[in-house]
Simulated scan of single mutants.
Amino acid sequence: MREFGLIGRTLRHSFSQTYFTQKFDSLNLADHQYELFELVTIDELPALLSKHPDLCGLNVTIPYKEKVWPFLTKVAPSAARVGAVNTIEFTSDGRLIGHNTDMVGFRDSLRSFLSADFRGRALVLGSGGGSKAVEVALRDLGIGYWVVSRNPLGPGLTYDELTPEIMREHLLIINTTPLGTFPDVQECPPIPYNTLSSQHYLYDLIYNPRETEFMKRGQAVGAQTKNGFEMLCIQAEEAWKIWNGEVR
């Protein structure tokens, strides 16, 4: 049996198990399975690994994309560049190597979302592991940005500093926070939604629900919106390549 899985704190929102189970079925891989592993703290990871000796690969989600680093043997250049891990490779000699496929997933998905002549700046809502992958992708695409968080001592802006002028100058708004994830679908990042226009693009890394409150408020004024499902699919396929030795 080849076993794979996802580690995180709360995973009831995740489609990863469904995605990979369907993939295994389509490839007739009856000896493959994908499980969800909820960890109260990342310190539970060693016990999980001991209990599941057939593990061949893991995905990592909130809030462990940065906290998992001390448990790894090494990090691949992709994770080192982003500063966060969302995929763990299990090598034949027992090493755990951290990778990041979120950056590629977001970058390629964003390319298909923005118009060819987009020249605006971006606001990245949140400063966690997902935000770091988004920031690297934006730099690769030549899109300037500010990070927005609740932390007044952070390197970017706070939500209270989002003036109408800043909102007009930043036409791409990316939610990397968990606000709005199922089942708390009524939540959304505290940006001044009354300043949005039909010129804005709202991208939400959340994919469950399909339309978040953040997206709905953008749609109400004619903004373009997109959820994170395509990003999920792209990063999952990149993880699959890593687990099968196709990426080094």
Rank of each mutant, 00 (worst) to 15 (best):
V104P: 07
E213K: 03
P46C: 12
K23H: 09
I173H: 13
Q33K: 14
G94H: 12
G180N: 04
P189Q: 03
Y159H: 05
A223T: 13
G120F: 08
Y34H: 00
F90M: 05
D93F: 09
R119A: 15
R210Y: 11
F90V: 04
S131M: 08
M231L: 01
F106Y: 00
T41S: 08
Y145A: 03
R111A: 07
I7H: 03
I143G: 07
M1H: 00
F90E: 14
F71T: 01
T158N: 09
T158D: 08
V82F: 01
S16T: 00
H170R: 07
N194I: 13
D54M: 06
L123P: 15
I97S: 03
L179Y: 03
R150K: 14
T181G: 12
T91C: 08
V221K: 06
S109R: 09
K216L: 05
L29H: 03
N86H: 02
Q199K: 15
T212N: 09
N86V: 00
Y34I: 02
R9W: 14
T163Y: 14
L11S: 05
R9I: 10
G126I: 06
S14D: 08
R217F: 01
T18G: 15
S16Q: 08
L232M: 15
W146P: 02
K132R: 07
L110D: 07
G218V: 01
S26L: 14
T21S: 03
E89S: 00
R9T: 13
V104D: 03
S197T: 15
Y193W: 13
Y64R: 00
A236Y: 11
A133Q: 02
R119C: 13
E238T: 07
A116Q: 07
V147T: 14
N100F: 00
G57A: 06
F113L: 10
F182G: 04
L48Y: 12
G222T: 12
Q22C: 05
V124Q: 02
E246I: 05
E169K: 11
S92H: 13
V136C: 09
T163D: 10
M231E: 06
V68E: 08
H52E: 01
T91H: 09
L55F: 10
A47Q: 05
Q33R: 02
Q224V: 07
F118W: 11
W146V: 01
E44Q: 15
L39D: 09
E230W: 07
E89Y: 13
P46K: 01
G105E: 13
R248C: 12
E35Q: 15
Y64Q: 01
A84I: 07
A137L: 12
R217L: 08
I143K: 04
T10N: 15
P155H: 03
A236L: 07
L202S: 06
T177H: 12
E213L: 09
F229W: 04
L157I: 14
T10F: 12
L171N: 13
H200D: 05
D25S: 06
Q199E: 13
Q199G: 04
A79G: 06
Y203D: 07
I42W: 06
L58D: 02
T195Q: 15
G130T: 09
F118M: 11
I173Y: 02
L6Q: 05
A30Y: 10
I7N: 15
T212H: 06
R12S: 11
H200W: 10
